[in-house]
Design a protein around this nucleic acid. Structure first.
Lengths: 152, 152
DNA sequence: CCCTTCGTGTCAGATTCCTGACACAGGCAA
DNA sequence: TTGCCTGTGTCAGGAATCTGACACGAAGGG
């Protein structure tokens, strides 16, 4: 609309661009997951459980980048609707290992197809080398940021 | 804690890693901005106004990846506290161009120092080439995702 | 000129998510 | 054993954000 000064792109720092990319990815995922009645966190939870069965609520929360409390309400809904199961009693300690039900697995399959299409679109026009470069660079960023956060 | 199968890293897709990096960046920014009594959106708003004075509420919202409504409540608070100014009447149309006050500019300067330290830490161990590679690749991702979103 | 479309600012309601706090279980060292 | 610390599940409470909807102004085509 305005764009007075032809666009000062100083705010196009890598940090801003990172947020922009992440935002675009999330929006694209929400768009393809909405027809399936599924949110991004919803999908993330199922995907995590498929790859690492028996994860606890807290571990799922960390993996999906939400708090334990948020993940807990989601898990209760998923359990109520029959997508996951949790033992009534903790086998050891207080940890309640969660597992996908067949219904949850079927639901995840459809979602995975949708999400994979988004990721394919995101990687369109990128060579294999670029993808592995991006992977390494992003891992480097995460590591650098975490070191400063946790360690200090 | 559990890590049963030595870590199936299939979920380490570029999409997941992107979210991870963005999450780590946001957490690091929140950490350094908290002592200044400032949130990430708060800072983003000020930084946008510094680089493009006179942005409207809607434009600020898009730039900070929140809704117009959210940005509006933030702007009201910033105006109330004397960090920004908005004309009482729209010079043209309904758009209320927003500008930083000297106080807002001073506040931003301190925040910029803090945020820049985070970005420096994030880029630690990355060569100039890697940074420009990352920049180009991320821009490519955003473009690919947006094309599919808007165009279709 | 009219009128359709787009963008904007704003109001209200509702949802989501997080912050804070508690009790409990396991690991580890003294 | 005892004590300390970490991690977990859970219960409110509240803050932040979003969704839905409205009227108004500007731009473009008929």
């Amino acid at each position: 609309m305005s764009q007075k000064g032809a666009g000062v792109d100083l705010d196009k720092s890598l940090g801003y661009l990172l947020k922009e990319a992440s935002s675009a990815l999330r929006a694209a995922m929400e768009e393809v997951l909405r027809p399936l009645g599924m949110s991004v966190t919803h999908y993330s939870c199922l995907e995590l459980l498929a790859q690492r069965p028996g994860l606890s609520n807290s571990e799922l929360a960390r993996g999906a980048f939400v708090t334990r409390q948020s993940m807990n309400v989601l898990l209760q809904a998923l359990e109520r609707d029959g997508y996951v199961t949790r033992p009534a009693e903790a086998p050891v300690g207080k940890v309640l290992p969660t597992r996908l039900t067949p219904r949850g697995r079927r639901s995840l399959e459809k979602a995975t197809v949708a999400v994979r299409s988004v990721e394919v679109r995101m990687l369109a026009g990128m060579t294999e080398t670029e993808q592995s470069d991006a992977f390494r660079i992003l891992q480097n960023m995460v590591h650098s940021l975490r070191d400063g956060n946790d360690g200090a």
